[in-house]
Amino acid sequence: MTMTKPLLDVRDLRVTFQIGRDGAMPWSAPRNLHAVGGVDFSLNPGETLGVVGESGCGKSTLARALIGLVPARGRAEWIDGRDLVGLSPRQMMKYRREIQMVFQDPLASLNPRMTVGQIIAEPLKTHHPGLKSAEVKDRVKAMMEKVGLLPNQINRYPHEFSGGQCQRIGIARALIVEPRLIICDEPVSALDVSIQAQVINLLIRLQRELGLALIFIAHDLSVVKHISDRVMVLYLGKVMEVGPTDTLYADPQHPYTQALLSAVPVPDPAHDPAATVVPLSGDLPSPLNPPSGCVFRTRCPRAQSLCAEQVPALQGADRKTACHFPGPLTEAEIARARQTETA
């Protein structure tokens, strides 16, 4: 059996921002905000990795670190063996053709002073400056058709399009240089539900046709399940669980994963959410002062003294979990979590 080399292999990726001194105490030392705290994962060619977690868990920061928009430490090895972390803008230019990004706000990510044709053509002019104008225009029109836009709209401006159409423009701009990896940072969260389905199906079709790999970041776990081959669960910048989508959704081992999945809406009028949801007590801790040991322990219904003393390692074969006491929560633990929430 031939082993496929990962397209991207990430090891101990960390992003830390230094926060200035407190205005009330100007003599205090600067503090470090740990946005991403040692993330490990690999991505194979043509695979989709879903990334989920609450707001503030480091999902978008992780995406920006991979493409060099924020400084990072650790290692992110591309398939050619080059470490992408720490590359200069000039060194990174080669890999920007290979790795493109689709942003969360479709309209805000497009230049309002440029036509659709200019927006989609901009990466071509940057990475393939030798192309003639006629060839650039032909490629832009072909890409517009591929993503479901009419070529005769090439001279229109972003404000003349709906949110779903603007996201298609963003996808066309990302695909025009024929990348191998697309990072989608919550690409459907600003769209209506019916339009979300259209954009997701478009990404699935384009991935199949073009052999793309995707990193798909989202809050909606039902969307992530539909599009992803594997899912990685982040909490406070750390990986709680990662594994094949079907396995992780059918049998989540980490209490945080169980809480997230229990909150997914069920389209059944007879379903009582209060009877199945695993509540999370308290708020997300500040990344300026994360808990000792397991970062999830302050909200975990299963936390014990060991959880405060030791950081759990991400362990497992096909499915990996970072928990000292993995496994489904018992009815007693769920009941205790509900009592804590209402207290």
Rank of each mutant, 00 (worst) to 15 (best):
E333Q: 15
P45W: 05
A63S: 12
T342C: 01
V239P: 01
V52W: 02
R173A: 02
T4S: 14
D40C: 11
C300K: 00
Q315H: 08
T48W: 09
V140P: 01
P244E: 03
Q304R: 15
T48I: 13
S28A: 15
L7V: 04
P89W: 01
C323D: 05
R31M: 09
D251C: 01
P158T: 01
V295H: 11
I120W: 07
P151D: 13
A63V: 07
A337T: 08
N111P: 02
Q198V: 06
R90A: 15
L191A: 06
A332S: 14
R73E: 13
P287M: 01
L175M: 03
G56D: 04
M101S: 01
Q167R: 12
H226V: 09
H324K: 10
V85P: 12
S222I: 04
Q118R: 12
M240K: 10
E209R: 11
Y157N: 05
C166I: 02
I176A: 00
M3A: 14
L150M: 13
F296Q: 04
E160V: 05
M232R: 01
A218I: 06
D268A: 07
T2F: 06
L191R: 06
R302Y: 03
P129K: 08
V266Q: 15
R180D: 11
M144E: 12
C300M: 02
V51F: 02
K94I: 00
G56L: 04
G86C: 05
T247I: 10
G86H: 09
P290G: 00
V277M: 08
T245G: 10
E47F: 01
L314H: 09
H219I: 07
A250M: 10
G293K: 06
N44F: 11
P123Q: 13
A303Y: 11
Y157E: 01
E309L: 11
L306M: 13
F17A: 02
P71D: 12
I200Y: 06
K141I: 06
C323P: 14
W78P: 05
Q198C: 08
T342M: 06
V224Q: 06
P106E: 03
A197M: 13
T126Y: 11
P151K: 11
E209K: 15
H254W: 00
Q153L: 13
M93Q: 14
L221K: 07
N44T: 01
G237Y: 08
D318K: 15
S162C: 00
M144T: 08
A121V: 00
P151Y: 11
Y95N: 02
F17P: 03
D40N: 15
L8Q: 10
F325W: 15
N111I: 03
T276H: 15
Y249S: 03
Y95S: 09
I215R: 06
H128T: 09
H159L: 12
Q104C: 11
P89H: 04
S262V: 00
S28K: 08
F161N: 01
L260R: 10
M3R: 15
